[in-house]
Design a protein around this nucleic acid. Structure first.
Lengths: 209, 209
DNA sequence: CGTACTTTTGAATCGCATCAAATCTGGTGG
DNA sequence: CCACCAGATTTGATGCGATTCAAAAGTACG
């Protein structure tokens, strides 16, 4: 488990993750780049909040452990900010880990708050970001309120895919966790839906019919 | 089903709902007060977004109907803003209804956006509001990811109550819906937890032991 | 006092979690 | 290139807990 903080090349960062382009110059100068390996912890519950994390490439997750030991996925970022709510907290309320080799920008909170005050464009982008996250979380709540596996799968395809077609960008096992299902239930339900003609499964491509 | 739009008395509004005090003067002049009865719709899916809603007293809910006809509660506001994400949307993605006689402030979106641009204090309060909502929604997602009724109940008491003590401010039946359970399951599980000595139930007062 | 709604209990059913185990897959090192 | 390993995928069997349907009792309110 090693990570490297390297020199920043903004044009390539912005190409990889457009949100980086919204960061004002003053804040950019304080940014640190972190190249993390897979399964590397970024922070843990209780750690003091020092930075806001922006995922440039790869994937990072916000997770919490249930008392029975199972892992709940609270956010999965494949680009964009992670743990937005930490900006207003003293310490973290969740753990954050990478799931694959991941490039991250770390933005010190004090400078981040100052930039929000000073830069109207950045501020507006941040508000949009928060709003989008709220909408995403509501969709997730709605999905988890459905109590059949098939309904959750259909809901996910409808809300995360386009025109009823979803290209799965994670393993099915980890998708199962995101759906709040055991992986066995997901496998079986996918098969059943396909045999019933409700779903078209072709590798990572899923389409409702 | 009737509702009344009346003259505004800001001191009393602010006393009932402190968030109203953060609204800048310019925006206050555009606010409309709505006194709604119980079970009155505020807006419906697809309606164009004209106003941001601030619940002053009473209760309003954001709901969506699942395909099987059951009602999913996406937000329950007993004071504070409702449907924050609507500020960035053309039309509503959910229905909103009151559940009891409710006083509401309606703030036109254009003036609301302008006030956010101009007033740093209001803006900061709004960002805090969005952030709080994100944290609340993550807690709700975490809760819905637990698959036993007892775990969801404990989680709710821990996260919504204080020091393991919760004073329930809604009917148990509607609490069941918020927990993603059938009301029968909730009743039975409460009884079982009490008989097992895990929970202390006394009317609307619930305490974990 | 009647009506609508919540609370409560019962019984039957079904779907998902769980435990177990086999197979498949991609990546690593010899 | 092949052996090997960890993790993902798949299938099977079992049990539990939640849903569902039904109905009775309690409660609030006009």
């Amino acid at each position: 488990m090693q990570s490297a903080i390297e020199k920043l090349d903004w044009p390539s960062l912005i190409e990889a993750q457009p949100a980086a382009g919204l960061i004002p110059i003053g804040l950019r100068q304080q940014a640190k780049r972190l190249d993390a390996q897979a399964h590397e912890p970024l922070f843990r519950i209780g750690d003091p909040v020092r930075c806001v994390y922006l995922v440039v490439s790869g994937e990072a997750r916000l997770i919490r452990l249930a008392r029975n030991g199972s892992e709940v996925i609270l956010q999965r970022s494949r680009g964009g900010f992670l743990a937005e709510a930490s900006l207003e907290a003293r310490s973290y309320h969740c753990d954050a880990i990478t799931t694959k080799p991941t490039t991250i920008l770390m933005l010190p909170v004090a400078a981040f708050r100052a930039a929000l005050e000073e830069d109207p464009i950045f501020r507006s982008a941040w508000q949009s970001q928060l709003t989008k996250e709220i909408r995403k979380l509501r969709a997730q709540c709605e999905r988890l309120s459905l109590n059949s596996a098939a309904d959750r799968i259909s809901h996910y395809i409808e809300s995360e895919g386009a025109d009823g077609i979803l290209t799965l960008n994670q393993s099915r096992k980890s998708w199962a966790a995101e759906l709040g299902l055991s992986h066995e239930a997901l496998y079986r339900t996918l098969r059943r839906m396909q045999s019933e003609g409700v779903l078209d499964v072709d590798g990572v491509r899923l389409a409702t019919k």
